[in-house]
Amino acid sequence: MSRKTSMTYKNEILEQYQRERGGEMSNYLFEPTRRQIKEACLWLLPRRKEKYDEGILNRFFKFKEGENKSYAIERMKGDKFKPIINFLKGETKSTTPANLELISWLIDFKPRPLSVYLNTEKYTKTETTRQKSMPMKQTYQIPTETEMVEIPDTKVIQKDDRSITIISQINPSLKITTIVSL
């Protein structure tokens, strides 16, 4: 496993793009044009809203306070997207961090942005693929009749039409409160 850097981030984004040709956005990104990238941004704007996505978009589009983001993207000149196209087509080897982050958002590369990517644990691509394709199974051991099972002391402490609050005392120093919405 190699150390994560801004270079590995760039390479992994480009590899994902080349492998998936835009993934969910392949209609727009398979053979990207300035107009298609703009349309992809407009289509994704209300749909892709993860924790850092707003910052990624603000960095690229430089939205003004209170500005209608869709309208601002529509007004954006197509030349702003040309470096992204050149990078995706391999005509240039590098691009600005803002362009790279927008590409990561467009193709739904995770983890994004770079700051989050650099702070994630190192893993191999086969581990990532395995985690996506094979859900982890949890196994539970059912005690036999001869094994004693300790059931915690549990009491309903509040109940109304919308919820039930239950408290369980696992041991003298540990109490767990559970609220169940109905």
Rank of each mutant, 00 (worst) to 15 (best):
E50D: 13
R130Y: 15
S168Y: 00
F81A: 05
N11Q: 15
L106D: 09
K62H: 11
W43H: 06
L42A: 03
C41Q: 06
E147S: 07
E39C: 06
P113L: 09
R130C: 14
I13Q: 14
M136D: 07
P83I: 08
F81E: 05
E15T: 10
R21T: 00
G66S: 08
K175R: 08
R112W: 01
E31D: 12
C41S: 12
T95G: 02
Q36D: 11
V149P: 03
R48P: 02
E65D: 07
L102E: 05
S133C: 13
S26I: 07
D153I: 13
R3T: 15
K137L: 12
L102A: 09
M136I: 12
Y28E: 01
L118V: 06
I84S: 04
K82Y: 07
E15R: 11
P113C: 07
K93L: 13
K62E: 14
I166K: 07
R112L: 02
Q131D: 15
P135N: 04
I170P: 01
I166R: 05
E54I: 02
L114E: 13
K80F: 03
M148I: 14
C41E: 06
L42D: 03
K137W: 01
S163D: 14
K155C: 01
F63Q: 06
L42C: 01
D161R: 13
K80I: 05
D161I: 09
G55Y: 02
M134W: 08
Q141P: 03
K132D: 13
L45Q: 11
F63C: 11
Y52H: 11
F87G: 08
F61K: 01
L14R: 14
Y71W: 03
K69D: 00
I179M: 07
F109V: 08
T96I: 00
C41N: 06
Y9H: 10
F87V: 08
I13R: 14
K77W: 04
E65V: 06
K69C: 00
L88M: 09
T144L: 15
K125V: 04
K122E: 15
P97N: 10
W43F: 11
D160W: 05
P172C: 02
L14M: 15
S94C: 02
F63N: 06
K159E: 15
D108Q: 10
L45K: 03
S94D: 14
I85R: 00
T92R: 12
S104I: 03
E150Y: 10
T120D: 07
S104M: 04
M136E: 14
N99P: 09
Q158G: 01
R21A: 04
R21E: 09
K4M: 08
N86W: 04
I164D: 01
E91D: 09
N119C: 02
L14K: 14
Y123A: 13
P83A: 05
T33M: 03
A72N: 03
Q158A: 14
D108P: 01
M148Q: 11
A98E: 15
I73Q: 03
K10D: 10
E31W: 03
G78A: 02
N58V: 04
P83V: 06
